[in-house]
Amino acid sequence: MVDYLIEINGLKISFKQKNGFVQVVRGIDLKIKRGEIVGILGESGCGKTVSATSILRLEDESAIYDSGQIFFKGKELTDLSESEYQKIRGNQIAYIFQNASTALIPHKKIGKQLMGVLKRHDLPRSKEKILVTLESVGITEAETVYEMYPFQLSGGQNQRIMIAQGIICGPDLLIADEPTSSVDVALRKVILDMLKEINRKTGMAILMITHDFEVINYICDRVVVMYGGLIMEEGPMAEVMSNPLHPYTKALTYCAQSIYQNGSDLFTLSGAPPTPAEFKLECPFAPRCSFKRSTCMLEMPMMMEVDDRKVRCVLYREEYPDVRSDL
């Protein structure tokens, strides 16, 4: 029995709207092992951020957990009180935001902010430790930066500081919400390298939320593809990237590859993903799927296991072997 760091079972989350509720996450299962780097890939609005933040219960008060459990080191998180949760946040599970410049406290010096994190979790308030952490995320002039304010630093530096803030307590899991989307390409690599390095050295698991293929390619061990509030496909990164099973994943890889090929047309996928208000009990991708069957619009496909991968598509039922070869 493998000891999972995070185990999410059947998580469903709704948000309260003016006229009723809308279910945004419709039942996901996710397991993360210690030291693993898992990436959640998906377009905007597919529920990937909500799923990730739900681990730390970071979303609005208007979010309702309809059903499902989240286990962290075997302990169920949904039962925890707010104060117990506060002990975990930043300490055992860290979360870093997309836009570091706004997520850092604008009116506090960097040193003070990081000191505040240490203080919060009753760790020794050592300036040394902060400087070391800053250097480990690639800040060269740690002493100077210690006394500066976020608005005096560049976006890239702030991003690194954000990561430093996340790792300073030595968490078991780092949830990174699109950490490189607001950063230039050159820096992207640096940051990803840094994360890889930290993972290698400390064994810290990373849950990466992204819509960028290349990030997934570069850093993740496993990848989870989400669409319409559900997981469409899951598996080891190399396999999923080279041999996508789900029609959606396939389309995505085509889109990505077509940029690099020197063909005249860019592969596009017509239509748009459904908004949560439009969710129905059918395969969410069906309206855009070229391999659509009649059953796709009648019921929600179940998750199928194919070797060590998972896929939610009717095509992987027994009756459609021939179609699969067309993929």
Binding site: I105, G116, R120
Partner: peptide
């Protein structure tokens, strides 16, 4: 509603400290 408040929550600050410090 300012974004850095979420950051503070993410590092585990309690409401009281957020109130006082932020």
């Amino acid at each position: 509603t300012m974004p850095f408040i979420k950051g503070e929550v993410a590092i585990g600050k309690s409401n009281v400290s957020i109130a006082i410090e932020n």
